[in-house]
Computed example of a mutant assay.
Amino acid sequence: MSTHSRRPGNPPPSVVRRRQAVTRPQPLDEEEYIEQAHLYELLRLRTAEQMPIQELLEQLRHEVLATTKLPMAMEYLLTEVKHSGLLAPAMQRMGHYFTDFQTYLIRQSEEDTGRFLMGTALQIMEAEVKFRIQGATPAGMFLFQFEVLCRNRLSYDKGLTAISNDPIFDDDWSKWILGMRAQIGLVELSDLLFLVSDEYKRRLLEAGESIENKGPFLFGEKEGRIAFANRRKDPLFLFGALQRHLGYPKVPRIIKTDPNVDLVPQLARRLERLEARIGLMEEERRAGLDITKFYEQNKHRLKLPE
């Protein structure tokens, strides 16, 4: 009998590993990603017009391709929105269709703090799905998603956990991403990337050192050289260099609207109201104010601004 005991009823570790392998999400077909990008774009544009998300889902479910699974997913989202007013719980239950990172972005946009807006989340999700359509690599997808966390000041712990479950990553990638949670803030990002790159492996071999217990070597030589050149610098410089030299996609940045655009019309309406009030005060001062014109039946005779 084995000396290793386990609690009654718990499956052996081999069974647990098999179950995890079965439940790991798989990449979707290209047409699913194309329709997702279309949906996120429409939602982003129409939510900017202050349209309720419930009405949008009602309308847009007829605009997406019926041969995909997206209409069924939208039906489920619509049911959850009617019940709780939130999208994230339904997306989490559909982990086979929506990635954990997409669910995390929507959940953060639905927080009461209001720091991360729904429009920002939809714009990021649209860009991410388009990157998948173009043939995303694990290295490019990780750098894109991690830059999203950096630029929008999202939680590294929860964000990296969501990233590690993306179907584009294999077990080596997922294990390394989860290990980053304890290293971010203590070790620079450029050093973390360099130590798992083929450039670091090449230098070890040239120096005659063993690569045993090193790695896993997930990034290429170019990524390693760029990471080494950006040590002790702002991580945003590293992202910019990788995007220039390797063509990685840029994270969408929301353009802030100018608050002074509507300032002139607002001032004009206020001046009209002030002129009307001053006119009333002058009439009252001259004892010539006729209050009968403010009666209900004489309302149509008034020439006051709306």
Rank of each mutant, 00 (worst) to 15 (best):
L195D: 10
L195N: 14
L195V: 12
V196P: 00
V196K: 12
V196M: 09
V196F: 06
S197W: 05
S197R: 06
D198Q: 11
D198M: 07
E199F: 15
E199W: 14
Y200V: 03
Y200M: 02
K201W: 10
K201S: 11
K201D: 12
R202V: 14
R202M: 07
R202H: 08
R203F: 09
R203G: 11
L204I: 12
L205Y: 05
L205V: 14
L205T: 14
L205S: 13
L205C: 08
E206G: 11
E206K: 15
E206T: 11
E206C: 11
E206S: 12
A207F: 08
A207I: 08
G208N: 07
E209G: 01
E209N: 05
E209R: 14
E209H: 10
E209C: 03
S210A: 02
S210F: 07
S210T: 14
S210L: 05
I211K: 01
I211M: 08
I211E: 14
E212A: 12
E212G: 05
E212P: 08
N213F: 14
N213W: 12
N213G: 05
K214V: 00
K214N: 03
K214R: 13
K214C: 08
G215M: 02
G215R: 02
G215E: 00
G215I: 04
G215A: 03
P216H: 02
P216R: 06
F217L: 07
F217Y: 13
F217N: 04
F217W: 10
F217K: 00
F217M: 03
L218D: 02
F219A: 03
F219P: 00
F219Q: 02
G220L: 05
G220W: 03
G220H: 01
G220V: 04
G220P: 09
G220Q: 02
E221G: 08
E221V: 15
E221K: 15
K222G: 07
K222D: 12
K222P: 04
E223L: 07
E223V: 15
G224D: 01
G224F: 04
G224M: 01
G224V: 00
G224P: 01
R225M: 08
R225Q: 09
R225S: 03
I226S: 09
I226G: 10
I226K: 13
A227D: 12
F228T: 06
F228R: 15
F228N: 12
F228K: 11
F228L: 13
A229N: 11
A229E: 13
A229H: 06
A229V: 12
N230H: 15
N230D: 04
R231C: 06
R232D: 12
K233G: 01
K233Q: 14
D234F: 13
P235Q: 13
P235Y: 09
P235T: 11
L236S: 15
L236F: 10
L236C: 13
F237Q: 12
L238I: 07
L238R: 11
L238D: 05
L238E: 05
